[in-house]
Amino acid sequence: MLKSYTEAFCQRLTGLKNGCTIKDAAQVRHILETCKNAMAKDYLFKFDIAAGDTVRDAVTTTANWRFILCGISAYFYDDGGALAVGDWPRVSVNFENFSLSSPFGAGARDVNRVASNLVFGREGLTGGTHHLEESKRIFLDLGQRFTTMLEAKGGAVPCFGAVLLTGVEINENEFLNYGGENG
């Protein structure tokens, strides 16, 4: 269902697949050395927005490691499901110090633009107060610091929730070895 992007990415890094046969110790060393320098990481942003308000939050990712954004998931609660379809929060992700290899360039990006099929849908709970979705396609960006900007569009009620940015952090030296911006 919610196919992970870290899985796909890490598999590409390591050649590690469920059930694959390792033939010798050298392959094991390759996997271990690679995995030492590529770890999954979550960055969570909690928000509490008044009607029509905008909130900002920022996080600094780990020093000397490059964060590769692989997926976004989010949920929010409104006041008893009072927000109408289309009035649900929009989430923008703004990368500072983004990598030159970023395909998105500078500036704030609306998630619905970066990942056009990320839609905050209602997920089956009666009352419609629980919303959870995850981007369905891989998109990558590199950053040492990023900011999310959360916007409440329309609606007359406050809402709160969380956005989870899931990705992989790669040791700076390994990043360059993989053909990073200076590699």
Binding site: Y75, L132, L164
Partner: peptide, 18 residues
Amino acid sequence: NSAQSNDYVPVQLISTPG
């Protein structure tokens, strides 16, 4: 001692049964 997330992540956001 390096946290794998910057905050406590709600289990409802990452649990697989949902």
